[in-house]
Each structure stands twice: as structure tokens, then as C-alpha cells.
């Protein structure tokens, strides 16, 4: 499967990709984007099976990316990986069509649980 990791921080993209490996999801192909606008283009170009996106980014935020994808008819599964995990943000994410929200700091177990709900349990 193909995952799109979206974060304006190169450090955090590396940590997310490392955590994917630690959670048993290291076999997936990973594509990276630095902001929502770049990610929108990457969804068109690469047709990922899941988007893992930060919320707060320059150029285009994660929630604006999700809105743009849904408005243009893209149903790609979408999850947030963000430093804010308040009930209000979780509700906003769910209302916009996100499958999950992983709050930073996170654990490999949190990744496995969230990704398993979208990609199916690992064999």
C-alpha cells in the first residue's frame, strides 16, 4: 500500500516514518509532502491508500487539505497526526471526514491501532 505523510517539519516526517516501521507498517511505500497544497497535488499524482497529515502547516493546513479533497470528490482515507488532541479538534476532524486523529506525542501502538482501523489488521 502507499501512504502520503504530510508535515512541514522534515524532522517530524522522519519520526512518523520511523514510527510506521516500529508499529509494523514499514512495508508500505511512503510519499512525502510539506504542506496541504503540495499534498493535494501528491494525492492526484500518487493515489495513496491513506493520508497521514499534520494539522497546522503553512500554505494550506491539514483541515483545509481534507476539505479540498472531499470537495473535489476524493474519498482517500485520511488521518491527522497533530500536537492538538482536544475533543473539539477530534470532533472537527471527524465531521470533516477524517478516520482518526493521533495526538503528538504518540506511540507505535497508537499508530498500529489507528492504521489497523483503516488498512485492516496486519497478518
Amino acid at each position: 500500500m502507499k501512504l502520503l505523510v504530510v508535515d512541514d517539519s522534515r524532522v517530524m516526517r522522519q519520526i512518523v516514518i520511523r514510527t510506521l516501521r516500529q508499529s509494523g507498517h514499514g512495508d508500505h511505500e511512503v510519499v512525502e509532502a510539506e504542506n496541504g497544497r503540495e499534498a493535494f497535488e501528491a494525492v492526484l499524482a500518487h493515489s495513496p491508500d491513506l493520508v497521514l497529515s499534520d494539522w497546522n502547516m503553512p500554505e494550506m493546513s491539514g483541515i483545509d487539505l481534507l476539505d479540498a479533497l472531499r470537495s473535489s470528490g476524493h474519498a482517500v482515507p485520511f488521518g491527522f497526526v497533530t500536537s492538538e488532541g482536544s475533543p473539539e479538534m477530534r470532533a472537527q476532524a471527524e465531521a470533516a471526514g477524517a478516520s482518526f486523529l493521533i495526538a503528538k506525542p504518540f506511540t507505535p501502538e497508537a499508530f498500529d491501532e489507528a492504521l489497523g482501523s483503516v488498512l485492516g489488521a496486519r497478518p
Binding site: D8, S9, N56, S83, E84, S86, E88, A103, K104, P105
Partner: peptide
Amino acid sequence: DDLRDALGELVNMVGGNVKSLAASTASLSL
């Protein structure tokens, strides 16, 4: 550049979690 990126993520996580403690509708800066 690495250092600015990493410290930015560090304070972003601290700030994001402090904001969640406050349970208030507010925005977090970059």
C-alpha cells in the same frame, strides 16, 4: 536548519498539549 525544525516541533508539541489542557477554542501559531 535541522535544529530550528526539531526545536519548532518540540515547542509545537508542548504548546499543542498546553492548549488542550486549557480546553478553549483557540488557535496555535506556527
